[in-house]
Design a protein around this nucleic acid. Structure first.
Lengths: 163, 163
DNA sequence: CTTGGAATGTCAACAAGGCTGACGTAGTTT
DNA sequence: AAACTACGTCAGCCTTGTTGACATTCCAAG
């Protein structure tokens, strides 16, 4: 706001604006490779998100996924239905609570997930390599602090759960 | 892939997957504040993008904007029309080439832009503050290398032009 | 045991914002 | 004069978000 904040943080409004634009362009690059793979199959971003988190937490329920993705159940359901119909996702009625549907990737689903993930990781890895090892920690810290608290909880939960 | 790549890059596939998720959640946080402001006026992400880049490059042409945003003119036109109708954007016929339309924000447009930008910068600033000054450079380097080459050219052009 | 409410998931209809294709109208270039 | 370029628009489609209504299932209170 004033000279002090600039001095203390080493950040002018102009620098922040550039960071904002970098975020915008980078996110497009971030999804570009998966989007090409998905488009070839008639899928979109929403399918990728579902596939990613089902892979991450096999057996997760629809409700659980809703919390992570932050969309309505109707919206998710449409995507999920096509994935189940196409044999990429398995939806099994819960044994303990028969209202729940437990979601897992089929073998075909895992294959697509690997394809998407490999492409995306390759780009990430290249970006990290060029930025140097020191940048990685800082990058993740900044991203983590940019999340909403609720999103951050999800993130931390996934992180800890996968240890 | 093997132990060597881990050792050389300090990056396991698992670390990369976490970075991918961090990117996903962070981008949502990144747009959350503007989205609230926009929604109150009946606008969406597309309006923000147009407003941002018109502010950034006052007098830019429609064609120019199309290249930056990477959408079709039909799609952009819909957004632009509402912004002009609502008195946030001024579309003036070019003097040198009268086929072109030069776009600038009106006073009202600048007001909204400031509101959106302030909210977004505040979150960025907070994230950077918590990550520490060393993280800022690394963060931007990683983002820059994550872009497609074409996107990166646009980014560099904006960066150099605004000096 | 039954009944009412809460949780879970599905179907229907609508809106925003992408897309392609076709076309019109200026203005510019050759 | 002809061709090309910049922009706008109409029509129609797709994805992915939304709300509302509804069926099923579970659980807890009476």
């Amino acid at each position: 706001m004033d000279d002090h904040s600039d001095t203390l943080l080493f950040l002018t409004d102009e620098q922040l604006r550039r960071a904002i634009e970098a975020m915008f362009f980078a996110y497009r690059g971030f999804t570009a490779d998966p989007d090409r793979i998905l488009a070839a199959r008639g899928y979109g971003r929403a399918h990728h998100r579902a596939i990613h988190f089902i892979h991450r937490t096999p057996g997760t329920t629809v409700n659980n996924l809703l919390g992570i993705l932050g969309v309505t159940k109707q919206s998710l359901n449409r995507v999920l239905r096509t994935l189940v119909e196409d044999g990429l996702v398995d939806s099994r009625i819960g044994t303990r609570d028969r209202r729940e549907r437990h979601l897992t990737l089929t073998q075909d689903g895992e294959t697509l997930e690997a394809e998407l993930s490999t492409a995306q990781r390759a780009r990430m890895r290249a970006a990290f390599r060029e930025a140097g090892p020191g940048a990685v920690a800082g990058f993740r810290t900044v991203l983590e602090h940019m999340m909403d608290p609720e999103q951050r909880r999800h993130f931390a939960a996934v992180r800890d759960g996968e240890r």
